[in-house]
Amino acid sequence: MLNKKAFKFTIIDMAVIIFIIVAISLFFFRMNKVLDYKWQWQTIPSYFFFWDAGTGQLKANILIKGFFITIKLSIWSTLIGFFLGTLSGVMGAKGSFEQRFVSRTYVETIRNIPSLVLVIIFYYFVSSQFLDALYLDRWLRNSSIAIQKITGFFFAGPDQINSFISAIIALGIYEGAYVSEIVRGGIISIPEGQWEASFAIGLSRKKTFLLVILPQTFRKVAFPLAGQFISTIKDSAIVSVISIQELTFQGMELMAATFLTFEIWITITFLYFILTFSFSRFVSFLEKKYALKQ
C-alpha cells in the first residue's frame, strides 16, 4: 500500500514538472518566433552588483537593494501584525462584550478593505498628518552618520523614513486582521478541560491563560502564522504605489529605463520565489521535525 501511494505521488510530481517545462518552452518559443523578442539576459547581472571604479569595491545595485528592503518590510510588518493580531485574537476569544465588539469591528473592517486602498489611505491621510508632524526625517538628517547608517540598515534613510514607517504600519494593521482570526481560532480550540484542570490546582484565570492556554495556542497556530508571514512577503509589493523602493518598485523603475520588460519581471518573480519558497521549506522542515516528536 505504501509503495503504491509513493508511486502515485511520484507520477503526479512528474506530470506537474512536465507541464511546467512545456509551458515555459511554449512561452519562450512564442517570444522568439511569434513576437520576435530579442532577449538581453546579459545585462541583468549588472543590476544586482556593480564595480565602483572610484572605491575599487563591488557594490549592491538596484535589485539587491530592493530585495533587502522587501525583507525589512516583511519582518517589521509581521511583527506589528503579530502584536495586533494576538491582542485582537485574545480579545475576540476571551474578552468582554466590548472587547469582542472592538475585535470583530477591526477584523471585519480591515478584511473587507483592499490592502492597496488601506496603504494609500494610511499614507495620504495618516502619515501626512502625524508622521510629518513628528519631523522624524528632519531629525534624522541632522543626526550623525552612524545613526543614519543604523537607521538605514534597520528601517530606511531620511528621504524614505516617513514612507517606510507608514508602509509597515499599514501592512501590519492589514496582516494583523488575519492573524487575529488565526489566534482566536487557536484559543477557542483549546478544550475547556485545560481551564478546569488549571483552576483545580489553584491557578488564577490570568495565570491559566498566560501559562497554560496561550502557549498551547501558539503551538497549534505556529504553522498557519508562518503561512501568513509568507503572505506578508507577497503583500509587501503593494507599497510600491507610495514610492517605497522595494523589489517591485525597483523592477518598474528598471523596466521604464531599459524596456527589458520580460527579463526584469521574470527576475523579480524569481527573487520573490526565493524568499517565499525558502521560508516555506524551512517551515515544512520544522513541521516534520515537530510531528516526529509527537
Score class of each variant (00 low, 15 high):
206 K>D: 01
113 I>V: 13
204 S>W: 00
162 N>R: 11
166 S>K: 08
152 G>K: 03
113 I>K: 08
125 F>H: 11
138 R>E: 15
171 L>A: 10
168 I>N: 12
119 V>M: 09
153 F>D: 04
193 G>F: 04
148 Q>F: 07
107 V>Y: 03
174 Y>W: 08
118 L>K: 04
171 L>Y: 13
123 Y>P: 02
176 G>I: 09
186 G>F: 00
153 F>E: 03
108 E>P: 06
152 G>S: 00
205 R>P: 00
135 Y>S: 14
201 I>F: 06
116 L>S: 05
188 I>V: 14
162 N>H: 10
192 E>F: 08
139 W>A: 15
125 F>G: 15
166 S>V: 10
204 S>D: 01
112 N>W: 00
193 G>V: 05
162 N>W: 02
122 F>D: 01
125 F>C: 13
140 L>F: 11
145 I>R: 12
193 G>T: 09
143 S>I: 10
166 S>I: 09
121 I>L: 15
109 T>E: 11
114 P>N: 03
172 G>F: 06
177 A>F: 10
145 I>G: 02
186 G>S: 04
128 S>M: 15
165 I>P: 00
149 K>N: 15
179 V>S: 00
207 K>H: 11
119 V>W: 06
190 I>A: 05
116 L>I: 13
197 A>Y: 06
127 S>D: 07
120 I>S: 08
130 F>Y: 12
168 I>K: 06
204 S>L: 01
191 P>W: 02
152 G>Y: 03
163 S>H: 06
162 N>S: 11
199 F>L: 01
159 D>M: 12
205 R>T: 05
183 V>T: 02
176 G>L: 07
207 K>W: 02
171 L>I: 07
170 A>K: 14
143 S>N: 08
117 V>H: 01
167 A>T: 01
106 Y>D: 03
115 S>F: 00
184 R>W: 02
136 L>E: 04
108 E>R: 11
163 S>L: 05
185 G>D: 08
181 E>T: 03
172 G>Y: 03
142 N>R: 13
188 I>W: 05
132 D>S: 13
130 F>W: 14
143 S>L: 14
204 S>K: 04
189 S>K: 06
191 P>D: 01
199 F>C: 00
161 I>T: 06
191 P>I: 02
131 L>N: 03
175 E>C: 02
112 N>V: 01
112 N>D: 06
110 I>N: 01
152 G>M: 07
118 L>Q: 14
107 V>N: 02
159 D>C: 04
106 Y>T: 11
134 L>M: 15
123 Y>T: 05
122 F>I: 07
162 N>M: 09
157 G>A: 07
143 S>D: 08
184 R>C: 11
188 I>R: 10
143 S>W: 12
108 E>D: 14
128 S>P: 02
177 A>P: 09
112 N>C: 04
161 I>D: 01
189 S>Q: 03
149 K>Y: 11
181 E>C: 04
171 L>C: 07
148 Q>G: 05
176 G>M: 10
145 I>D: 12
129 Q>V: 12
